[in-house]
Design a binder for these strands. Structure first.
Lengths: 129, 129
DNA sequence: ATAAATCCTGTAGCCACTACAGATGCAAGA
DNA sequence: TCTTGCATCTGTAGTGGCTACAGGATTTAT
């Protein structure tokens, strides 16, 4: 399978695939005589894993750790669970931060009637500390 | 006021201040004979505005637009409110995205008991599309 | 006068891609 | 066989919003 088909199968842009190879998240693939990359089913599995992990917000480094565990075949659930829960805490923190943002934005936006008056309570709010 | 004092007053790192100047978010300040930057109260107001807007998650481009409106002194509430509400929608979308993430992560993490068994439901979940 | 703190410019790095430019490879039609 | 046209190649630079130096100049305190 050439990189185009590989890309379609995994839902990963071609440039991203080459990028993952460059940063050693994907191993160097076989090549055709002319130098085009060749992938197999095993690689599809790996890239789907990566893409799915990215969708769930894991960082490249976290994914690298997860893959090391999987590749070593000696991982324990505990190691994996720790990474996942740390990440989950991260996500929760981000949600909390955004909620505060939403509240503040909603409040200052609500003070404004959106008319033609050139003296906006939003601008005032942004100017005050 | 030199850049150090300016930085303390506004809560903005020195490097960030110089960065904002470079990207023309802050105007070029006066200089001492030896070439050190000099700031006044007006600049403090402007940078506080910028910092506050950043804290609320506005992008540099959004802030640039807001500042253009303020600088032109001919803005209407409507223009400002539109920018704010667009941004608020953004924030809401991000919260929704993160909530979905949290749910999925919680679900797959919950399936795992964290023992020593080397066959983790989390890894399985990441491998499946 | 000198030491220490602050400031200067310019450049490179961060993350996770994305977007080119310009050169090949390869399959199908004339 | 030649050409057309698409897919792929490498390498480099750009994104956003900073942050972190290096190596020098200036200012302030002693």
């Amino acid at each position: 399978m050439l990189i185009g088909a590989f890309s379609e199968r995994t839902g990963c842009h071609i440039e991203t695939i080459r990028y993952y190879e460059r940063i050693k998240l994907l191993p160097k693939p076989e090549r055709t005589g002319g130098g085009h990359r060749l992938y197999d089913r095993e690689q599809v599995k790996r890239l789907v894993f990566i893409r799915r992990s990215r969708e769930l917000g894991f960082s490249i480094e976290e994914i690298r750790t997860l893959l090391r565990l999987v590749d070593g075949k000696r991982y324990t659930c505990q190691e994996v669970k720790t990474i996942t829960e740390t990440h989950l805490e991260d996500v929760k923190r981000k949600i909390a931060d955004l909620r505060r943002l939403q509240k503040t934005l909603g409040a200052i936006s609500g003070q404004c009637e959106g008319g033609l008056v050139p003296d906006c309570p939003i601008i005032d709010a942004l100017f005050s500390e």
